[in-house]
């Protein structure tokens, strides 16, 4: 496994992903606190002279965290979906597989190596981003929720792992990037729609609700009810999807 990981990391390095991801997340980590701090002032300046009178509350540190998680959800999540499918399906679409599996390479380790290498890059990028975000939030708001923010970030990372496991299954199932990314998005949208029905018993612990819990945890300072079960369900879903992709891949034919 370590040999496969070495080459998957080399791929991330040589294709600049190891630069692009941390850079993107660090950029968001800088912009989010700034947006939270000055957005109200910017909106107020736009409304000046229009006759519309809105009183914006003074932004607080919590707003910076809400903005950060929201930005990560809107930008990073989409990029992760696109890139993870491209990484997982690349060897198939580029016809690299026959040469790889003409050697005694374990298919299980091969898949896990791709998943773990990209997950690790994301984790390190998120941690780096979080350090930058914490610094800017402190400078701008004079207050941080260091531990709570870190927990929210880990919960967000778990959500990314869950989505990446969907991407992995789709990359194994389909032969083209377009189909795999399309089906990954459909699955993502499907899960998002399900999260609307959070009052339905069976759906109230779906992984899509993880981000809500992250924000709630920061604002409440204590674990929200149901967060533990939702984390457990997300871990089970992720593990199950990984197992499914391995099972499918091990029984799949490789055409050259």
């Amino acid at each position: 496994m370590s040999k496969l990981l070495k080459y998957d990391v080399l791929f991330l390095r040589r294709t600049a992903k190891v630069i692009v991801f941390p850079a993107l997340i660090v950029l968001i980590s800088i912009i989010s606190p700034l947006t939270a701090k000055y957005m109200n002032q910017i909106l107020a300046s736009f409304l000046e002279g229009s006759g519309v009178q809105i009183d914006f509350p003074d932004p607080v540190a919590l707003d910076s965290y809400v903005q950060y998680i929201s930005d990560l959800n809107e930008i990073v999540l989409l990029v992760v979906l696109f890139v993870s499918v491209s990484i997982f399906i690349r060897d198939k679409t580029k016809d690299l597989m026959p040469l790889i599996f003409s050697k005694p390479v374990s298919r299980t380790k091969y898949l896990l190596s791709k998943y773990i290498s990209f997950s690790t890059l994301l984790f390190v990028s998120l941690l780096l981003g979080y350090l930058v975000f914490t610094y800017y939030t402190y400078v701008l708001f004079d207050k941080v929720f260091l531990i709570e923010g870190l927990v929210a970030l880990l919960v967000y990372f778990l959500y990314l792992l869950f989505l990446m496991s969907i991407a992995l299954v789709m990359s194994v199932l389909f032969r083209t990037y377009i189909m795999a990314i399309l089906m990954t998005f459909l699955a993502y949208i499907g899960f998002s729609i399900l999260s609307i029905f959070e009052n339905v018993n069976i759906l109230e612990y779906f992984p899509n609700l993880l981000n809500n819990y992250g924000i709630s945890y920061i604002s409440q300072g204590a674990l929200p009810e149901g967060m533990g079960i939702t984390i457990l369900v997300a871990i089970l879903f992720t593990g199950g999807l990984l197992y499914l992709s391995i099972l499918l891949f091990n029984h799949q034919e490789i055409h050259s």
């Binding site: 294709t15 580029k94 016809d95 690299l96 026959p98 040469l99 003409s102 005694p104 390479v105 050259s256």
Partner: peptide, 19 residues
């Protein structure tokens, strides 16, 4: 997969990681 240690394979159109 052990028998593959004894085999070398040359495909018709070889594709390698470009990097």
């Amino acid at each position: 997969r052990n028998y593959k240690y004894d085999i070398g394979y040359v495909p018709d159109v070889p594709v390698f990681p470009h990097y």
